[in-house]
Structure formats: structure tokens, C-alpha cells
Design a binder for these strands. Structure first.
Ligand SMILES: [Zn+2]
Ligand SMILES: [Zn+2]
Length: 359
DNA sequence: CCAATCGGACACTAAAGTGT
DNA sequence: CACTTTAGTGTCCGATTGGA
């Protein structure tokens, strides 16, 4: 019972906390990718933003202008796994003033909810009442309602056998979902495109910006093969290059806790991110989409649990007590694109995290 | 206000289908 | 035969209803 009782609605599995050390690792100007010391932190989490190469990148410092500051990329609560965020870490105790990509905390769309856990077998009383049970017998709820003696496991039906199915459609399972033709044969007109792990395209050249971790990064825009990537198709994906806009073009963000001056608009196109996956549908969501042909829900609910405990024998019993998994979203993320939201400071943006200073 | 009810989303997992 | 996909079945969330 000590296993799952601890879920706080507002908390999420904490990212490994990095030493707040940006100073020791300033990537050299012109470097394409300056990773932190190997082994220091989990690679997907802590990486330096690349510094623009003035020879190739339009975002690099204008003539004579000083190079932009290196930004350490630190994951923030609410960020999607694998995403990196090009912005200096907030001071201790503070959070980023702007919504993370791709789903800002303001929108109720995506809350990092832990999966609901079920007991292997609910007792008959709980099952009948459609309430949460536990592994103990009598279960907590039955004890509460004085149903200890009738708290027994139900009996699972045996699953039907011999039911024929059509041919399976294979799912594309690759690290770079990009090029591959995903579920090729979609007879139902079902989604035929597998979304990238992060749904939306990586916005970049924004302040701040987010983008997928290297394996999903778009190719270099300057025609060069940055990083160790691109060369061979066989080796595993390698960090690609992304460049923060130069502050001279796009003023940096205000200090933490301060709202943005104005809504950030789209910047002049310097880099075109790859097209979004046209399929916002969660692979898992398919379940409830189609009409359930046979929902074995016919059962007549017997009186049990609260009902059986008639007469209020067990007072003060409320099954809403205790742990609430705090729903927010199905475990399958909805990869929506172009969804708008409100910025804390009164601005607005999209779930792509595009935010750019007006200049 | 609170407990009981219950529709339906969600989780689990076994069976069917596929690949090697 | 290992692995993947599909879907049958159970769990239980959360909205609704009804009684005190
Ligand atoms: Zn129970
Ligand atoms: Zn019980």
C-alpha cells in the first residue's frame, strides 16, 4: 500500500537536478554543439545551446555585434521528455515565466498525469460499486463500510478464444519517424501517419525556443553537416545544429517573474522547421474513438458497497477520500498543433512555443 | 451535503497475427 | 517462437441523482 499512495496533483517525477553551473561550460563562439561533460548529466536533459556560426547562420551576430550568450538548456517542469529548452536556468525557487513547449501549464489539455493503476482483482463489493479497491482483504473500502466478511475476489471470465481478426497493420518503429512510411495499410481511413514523438515541429529562432532532442532535430539549414550527424544513415542520430537568434535582432527575455513586454510574433523566417506531423491523434487514443462493438458492460450492477452498507453503518465514509490521481489528460499525449494559449504576462502564443520579440 | 448510482474512459492482458 | 497488434474484459473516475 505504500506503493502508489503518493501522487501529488501538482507534482511530477522530478527531473534530475543539475548543478546550476553555466559558467564553467561556455561553449566557444562558433561551436555548433557544446555538450556538457560526458556523464555529468543525462544527455537528454542538459545540453548547451549551440552558438551560431557567423559564417553560416543568419541568426548569428550581425557584423561587429557581440556574440549572443550561450544558453544552457534545462528541462522545466511540464516540458515534454526529450525536449530541451534554450534559456538560462531560473534562479532557485523560481520558474520559467513562460509556458513550456509544447503544452503550457495554463491549458488543461496536457497534464502529465501518471497512469491510473488498477488492482489485479477488485473485491466483489468494490467491483459492483465501481469503486477503487486494493489488494488487502478485506479491502479498505469494505472495512470502511463494514463489509469485511463479504469482501472477496470476484471471478474473471475467461477470455473468448477463436475470434478471428483481420491482418495487423504494422506500426513503424524507428528512432527517426521522419522518413519512414508508417502504418501503411490503413483500411479504415485510420490515421496513416505516425506523429513524431513530440507532435509539433521544433520551433526555433525564437526567444525562448524549444526543440526536440537531437534525434528529432531538423537538418542543418545552412547546407552543412553539423555535428557528427547527417553523414551516414547507419549510425545513430547525432546532435544537429540550432541557433538562438542574436539579441540584437530579438531582444532577450525579461528577467524571471516579469511578463513579456508584448506578445511575441513570428520572426522573419530564418529557419524553416520540418512540417508537423499531420496526425495529432494519439496512437493509444484509438481505443475509445471507434464505437465499441461489444462493451461487456451489460452486467446489472448489484447493490454493494455504499449501498450494501445501508443505514449509514459506516459513518464518515467517503470514497473520495484519499488519493486522487488528479486527472488531466489521457496518457497518450495529444499532439495538437497551433493551439493557442494565454501567456502569464498577457501575451499569447501557440503550443509550439513560438515566441519572438517584436523587434 | 453527502452517499449511491452508473456511463464510459482507462488499464490490463490474453489471443491473434507477423516476423525471423 | 519471440514479438507486435488487437481487442475482450475488468477497474474505477467523475458526473449525476436522490435522500436526509
Ligand atoms: Zn474492495
Ligand atoms: Zn472489499
Amino acid at each position: 500500500m505504500a506503493s502508489e499512495a503518493s501522487k501529488s496533483p501538482t507534482e511530477q517525477p522530478a527531473h534530475p537536478q543539475p548543478p546550476q553551473a553555466i559558467a564553467p561550460y561556455p561553449p566557444p563562439y562558433g561551436a555548433h554543439y557544446a555538450p556538457l561533460p560526458p556523464g555529468a548529466y543525462p544527455p537528454p536533459f542538459y545540453t548547451f545551446a549551440p552558438i551560431p556560426d557567423p559564417n553560416h547562420d543568419p541568426n548569428a551576430a550581425p557584423n561587429g555585434a557581440p556574440p549572443p550568450q550561450p544558453y544552457i538548456m534545462i528541462p522545466q517542469p511540464g516540458m515534454m521528455p526529450g525536449m530541451v529548452y534554450a534559456y538560462a536556468p531560473p534562479p532557485p525557487g523560481q520558474v520559467l515565466p513562460y509556458p513550456p513547449y509544447p503544452a503550457p501549464p495554463q491549458v488543461p489539455t496536457v497534464a502529465p498525469r501518471p497512469k491510473r493503476k488498477q488492482v489485479k482483482m477488485a473485491c466483489t463489493n468494490c467491483a459492483a460499486a465501481c469503486k477503487r479497491c486494493d489488494d488487502s482483504r478485506p479491502c479498505e473500502r469494505c472495512q470502511k463500510y463494514g463489509l469485511g466478511e463479504s469482501c472477496v475476489d470476484g471471478q474473471r471470465k475467461e477470455r473468448k478464444k477463436g475470434i478471428k481478426r483481420g491482418p495487423y497493420k504494422r506500426k513503424a518503429k524507428s528512432a527517426n519517424g521522419e522518413g519512414m512510411g508508417p502504418s501503411t495499410s490503413g483500411p479504415e481511413g485510420e490515421a496513416s501517419v505516425v506523429p513524431t514523438p513530440y507532435g509539433a515541429p521544433p520551433p526555433e529562432a525564437y526567444y525562448p525556443y524549444y526543440y526536440p532532442h537531437p534525434p528529432y532535430a531538423p537538418p542543418p539549414h545552412d547546407g552543412q553537416a553539423h555535428g557528427e550527424a547527417a553523414a551516414n544513415g547507419s549510425a545513430h542520430p547525432v546532435p544537429q545544429t540550432y541557433f538562438p537568434l542574436h539579441p540584437a535582432v530579438y531582444p532577450p527575455y525579461p528577467p524571471y517573474g516579469h511578463p513579456p513586454p508584448v506578445p511575441y510574433a513570428a520572426p522573419p523566417a530564418v529557419i524553416s522547421p520540418p512540417p508537423p506531423d499531420a496526425n495529432p491523434k494519439s496512437p493509444q487514443a484509438a481505443e475509445s474513438v471507434s464505437e465499441a462493438p461489444s462493451k461487456s458492460k451489460k452486467k446489472t450492477r448489484a447493490k454493494a458497497g455504499e449501498g450494501a452498507a445501508k443505514g449509514k453503518a459506516a459513518a464518515g465514509a467517503s470514497d473520495t477520500n484519499g488519493v486522487e490521481p488528479h486527472d488531466g489528460a489521457p496518457n497518450g499525449y495529444q499532439a495538437t498543433t497551433g493551439q493557442s494559449f494565454e501567456l502569464p504576462g498577457g501575451g499569447s502564443g501557440t503550443d509550439t512555443g513560438h515566441m519572438v520579440s517584436p523587434v
